[in-house]
Design a protein around this nucleic acid. Structure first.
Lengths: 238, 238
DNA sequence: GGGTGCTCGTGATAGTGATCACAAGCGGAT
DNA sequence: ATCCGCTTGTGATCACTATCACGAGCACCC
């Protein structure tokens, strides 16, 4: 059986094909079975909103395939992207645990698949399985650190060029290799990059031009190559 | 026996004289006793650092008396204050739970008293008392929301005047009364306010002048009175 | 009284990024 | 091929705020 959007449905995406450290991995047999009973799987097209900022929390989503962007907006329409989520990430956990509205919106950036666990079932599950509650606390704590990294970026970094350099470096280091000249596939528009670093699309365009001219990076189609990593690092700390 | 700095020592500051919703209140008798065994109380002068950004987490501090400011700094010396903590707040919880370095520094803004709970003891305590682990998760979740509020302020609010107005409003609404014209005692320097809203001292000075001229607020000594709350709210949303 | 620190007010200046405007590139659909 | 929508490049302008500089106010202590 084929999924729509050319996506292969994963039979049990709670089993973490990618990473080991995820929230719902390596549970006791009992807990794992229970979790399988209360979850439900769905497939989402590109652009689908898993949830929207301000909604009452219905439950958590465990992303199995595809990427999602988390963003928050002001009334005037200004938007910042706070996180790009990948397979294995748990979305909406904070809202569910504290029973507050979702603090961000989650939008699929490509077709994907996610498990949904309703709020009530999850909370009951956590009450029944104290060990998992502690894991949840650890996960919330990690989320908190990510949020703090964001605060540091937004609050301590003044110039767009600095934030841009920081973002480029985070992309190039993420994929394991530390030689730092690994090509990165660019899947974001300038507009989206602008929303990540809190500036305008035009400024991002100019930053690309500028950095290319200064031999800091190179673009072949949508493939990005870091050309002068030390110089970028110098811009970041400056 | 008198404490130094003219402070009255509170015999058991885990019992939350102020608010009810705190982390370690209303525990079971057994858990409460255990908590009392592993905690230790100390008194701190103004300016004392409870912990410093980047240090390995030694434990959590439960603030009993006095106020503390949490801040993070960049290498170049720029500092932002991310939170002002009061009696009842638990500091350092995230670091302890996830065993990562403290993400902020905590400095006493006035003489005060705090309970210290060592990391190992706390983690063992949480393992033994699953109910408390869930409370911890809820607390972490609240912290996360506070952090997100900060992200929204830093990322979506462009002008210093907007952030300043936001800050003034948050001060005036905090103290219960919602008539909004309640006087607020100003205990922060312009420099500190600048570090909260991410601007310079001079700009804060000018904002005060400007807002006074526009009849938005009034200053009698260190007492602040909001004069035109709707106008401030308009500046915030703008 | 006369230091010594810290905080606060305010002017002048310059750099910078947001905004507006418009043209060009590019991919998909018909 | 042609159109349409989305994305990207780039110039011109302008408002805004960081920065530097300096003096005034104020508390505290010899």
């Amino acid at each position: 059986m084929r999924a729509p959007y050319g996506l292969n449905i994963l039979d049990n995406c709670l089993t973490c094909p990618v990473r080991e450290e995820h929230l719902f991995c390596n549970l006791s047999v009992h807990a794992g079975q229970r979790l399988n009973e209360i979850k439900s799987t769905a497939v989402y097209p590109k652009g689908a909103m898993l949830f929207i900022e301000g909604q009452q929390p219905r439950g958590v989503f465990v992303l199995c395939a595809g990427k999602a962007k988390l963003s928050t907006s002001s009334r005037e329409g200004k938007t910042i992207i706070t996180k790009l989520s990948e397979a294995g990430d748990v979305l909406g956990l904070n809202s569910v645990v504290s029973n507050r509205p979702y603090e961000v919106s989650a939008e699929m950036m490509e077709p994907g698949q996610a498990n949904f666990i309703p709020r009530d079932s999850l909370l009951q599950f956590l009450k029944d399985h104290g060990e998992v509650a502690l894991r949840v606390a650890e996960q919330l704590s990690r989320n908190y650190y990510t949020a703090y990294e964001e605060i540091r970026t937004l609050g301590l970094t003044t110039s767009p060029s600095e934030k841009f350099a920081k973002l480029l470096l985070s992309w190039s280091t993420k994929n394991g290799q530390n030689d730092g000249t690994t090509p990165v596939k660019l899947t974001l528009t300038h507009e989206e990059i602008a929303e990540i670093i809190g500036t305008t699309r035009e400024t991002v365009s100019r930053l690309f031009s500028d950095f290319k001219k200064r031999q800091l990076l190179q673009l072949k189609g949508s493939t990005l190559v870091i050309r002068n990593r030390p110089a970028l690092e110098k811009i970041v700390q400056s």
